[in-house]
């Protein structure tokens, strides 16, 4: 995320103060390299978030990442470990990285979990849908924020 700093500055220059993206049901406001405000009114729940992260067909996280979820034996090595994510990033920074990591690094392999635009040949079943709902993003953020080491 070395590129995050300069790019965030560019974004700030391009759209003074803040910039808005039309999500499927919310306006998402990005400030710098973070989304400070929750996407949903219901507060995120870390236990639900953990279950989403562990689920290979919902969160998909452990396909690429490893994490402190020992009961899931088959974890990925394509991306950094989720351990310590809550120490490395603020809640708002975690939120933007899940919502649309390409805002920080256009070459990222991290799928955009809360974006429906700019995608090609999305399967009909998933067309117009985000990978996670706003509530699910909040749950995952709440879980990752607990991973302090």
């Amino acid at each position: 995320m070395v590129r995050a700093g300069p790019l965030a500055v560019l974004l700030a220059l391009a759209a003074p103060a803040a910039w808005a993206q039309q999500g499927p049901r919310d306006v998402v406001v990005v400030e710098g390299d973070a989304i400070p405000e929750p996407l949903a009114t219901r507060p995120g729940d870390a236990a639900r978030g953990r279950a989403i992260v562990a689920n290979r067909s919902v969160g998909l996280c452990l396909l690429c990442h490893s994490g402190p979820i020992p009961e899931e034996r088959f974890q990925g090595t394509l991306a950094p470990s989720l351990a310590g994510a809550g120490a490395r990033w603020s809640v708002g920074q975690l939120r933007l990285r899940i919502v649309d990591g390409a805002r920080l690094n256009p070459d990222t392999i991290m799928p955009p979990y809360y974006r429906t635009t700019g995608l090609r040949r999305v399967a009909r079943t998933f067309e117009g849908k985000t990978i996670l709902t706003a509530e699910q993003v909040e749950d995952v953020v709440a879980y990752l924020a607990t991973l302090k080491e």
Binding site: A102, I109, P111, L119, R120, R121, A123, F126, K129, I131
Partner: peptide, 17 residues
């Protein structure tokens, strides 16, 4: 070419990773 809801290409997995 990146494709699909996960926005990945063949090359991302099979060349880069």
């Amino acid at each position: 070419r990146r494709q699909g809801q996960l926005n990945l290409s063949c090359a991302i997995c099979h060349d880069d990773n």
